[in-house]
Design a protein around this nucleic acid. Sequence first.
DNA 1: GGAGTCTCTGTGAACGTTCACAGACTGAAA
DNA 2: TTTCAGTCTGTGAACGTTCACAGAGACTCC
Lengths: 332, 332
Amino acid sequence: MKRPTIHDVAAAAGVSRGTVSRVLNGDRYVSTAARLATERAIAETGYVVNRNARSLVTQRAGSVVMVLSEPNEKIFEDPNYSTTIRTAIRRLAARDLSLVMMIAGDAGDRDRVLRYVKGGHADGVLLQSTHAGDPLVEALEGLRIPAVSCGAVIGMENVIPFAACDERGGARQMTRYLVEQGRKKIAIITGPMDTPGGIQRLEGFTDELGRRASKKLIEHGDWTRLSGEQAMARLLERSPDLDAVFCASDVMAGGALATLRAAGRRVPDDVAVGGFDDSDVAMSTHPPLTTIRQPLAEIAEETVRILLDLIDGAEQVESVTVPTRLVIRESA
Amino acid sequence: MKRPTIHDVAAAAGVSRGTVSRVLNGDRYVSTAARLATERAIAETGYVVNRNARSLVTQRAGSVVMVLSEPNEKIFEDPNYSTTIRTAIRRLAARDLSLVMMIAGDAGDRDRVLRYVKGGHADGVLLQSTHAGDPLVEALEGLRIPAVSCGAVIGMENVIPFAACDERGGARQMTRYLVEQGRKKIAIITGPMDTPGGIQRLEGFTDELGRRASKKLIEHGDWTRLSGEQAMARLLERSPDLDAVFCASDVMAGGALATLRAAGRRVPDDVAVGGFDDSDVAMSTHPPLTTIRQPLAEIAEETVRILLDLIDGAEQVESVTVPTRLVIRESA
DNA sequence: GGAGTCTCTGTGAACGTTCACAGACTGAAA
DNA sequence: TTTCAGTCTGTGAACGTTCACAGAGACTCC
């Protein structure tokens, strides 16, 4: 029981291979009679085009690869990925492109991705959580394949287009809110300093605080809950009188809350806590987190749109920054 | 600057196409001299095999498709997917198979998946969160393509092999624990009753409770936090004197906790709360959730292993059930 | 020395498309 | 009538592999 080929369809429709191909690809020059006959034959035979054969001659892959470059396994729990993946699948499917997932944690992984792309098996690359200095990015750049990042790649902002939320602006929103609430000694727990979320959320924080910002009130985390707990402990030890902390992610804020509770601090009475992301943990903590909402679906949509533009041959594309929104709950 | 083909490699190595192909595919009959020359030529030319050409003749796709059949968009937040996807990518990559992601939410989506598979573009299918009666499953069954589900497909346990945690046993563990803690009136918030997690966790609950189980103490949720909140409210209204609630997922438990707090119930003093999954929210709630840990990575590994066995031509494969573990924190 | 078995190699024919080209037919304009 | 443009169709040649086959050489065994 072999799969029907374009020949079978052609025979069933009483036309030639070429005509079937033209119908398949929406070519203008095909008579209505031929088109109808072909369409019926396709339906009757249950014909499905063989993408391999097509790709072989067109030199187009018909797929896009999403590369998850997260060296730290733990962080993959990040619920944000799900939204991005889902959105990407949908948008690409509308263009009959499939989404292939790859991981680029270590050198071996990166090599695999590179070979895949070099083999011409992807029409574009969607970068996800790429850290500064990732060798993969330069390698991809050399291959001249359309590549877009979901969130900026630090140091590569002008070479890899991206869509991202206004990290800096969002951080300013939160910081300003904490100030407005009368908080005097505001600390921050940042993300890794080789990611846009790490760097730019800190920038927004210091931007807003001006010379009131103090090095003593800055601690670094790695996005994980545990790192949030530990950073909070360090902050409390160094500055027991702090009255607010802005955590660069909700997950880290969850950790900070636990440390604060263990230290007997009431939230928000003694210490206000602000998060970032508005992921689902923000609703589950006690008290629920006041946080910065980043429209992940929209960011994913834009990322894919830019990639499609590039695949379609756009010379120059603009990176996109979408605004964030302050979501006030109970922690601040 | 065209990509080098097998011909270029053959020319560079001073051998024939056939020999290069044999080296590529690890054929036995090739001399060391030829092998060495070929390998050098491959390295020098930067040759990467064209999978399309290969698939065209071998009739193997070189990829596996993971189908996310979740009609309800909301639920996709489930952090479990990330682990499964990541594990699958890794295991498949070791066999040089790539992972294509597809969604099968509505009929159009399902059609796309079916066309993809019918086109011979996947060597196997990984089913994820498939609900009972999903028409896609039957359709796939008809195509005779290797398919394995991550978690059982209700009603299809004997036709679609799967790997899953011991849902029923896990639920019994939790229920027994609550009983041992002296709880007298134990309620349950189940998942959707067309999923194994919905059905079997309830079964474990009633198994353990025996005739102490009461219909009045059963409420249904849909895995979302909101449904947990609402189900808890209904339970409290009907049975204000309940002293424990087993939630079939941590996320729903998070919702239940919020309702309990709003109702002035102390946890665990007045009401003990048990979850299921041991996902990251379990650590972020207040109090942290006592829950049932399901080894997601292990389940994903097994799912992929079974699929690979099927792809390798295994006639009969055994579904796998892995044990769960009670994780005691503070909510019960 | 011949037969038989292994090892190794090259070659032609697929696999299922698309694309460029050539040719046939139509209708309108010169 | 001829010419030209426009529409429609079929065909041969690619695309880059693998696979089966045939044949060459080396070695062993009688």
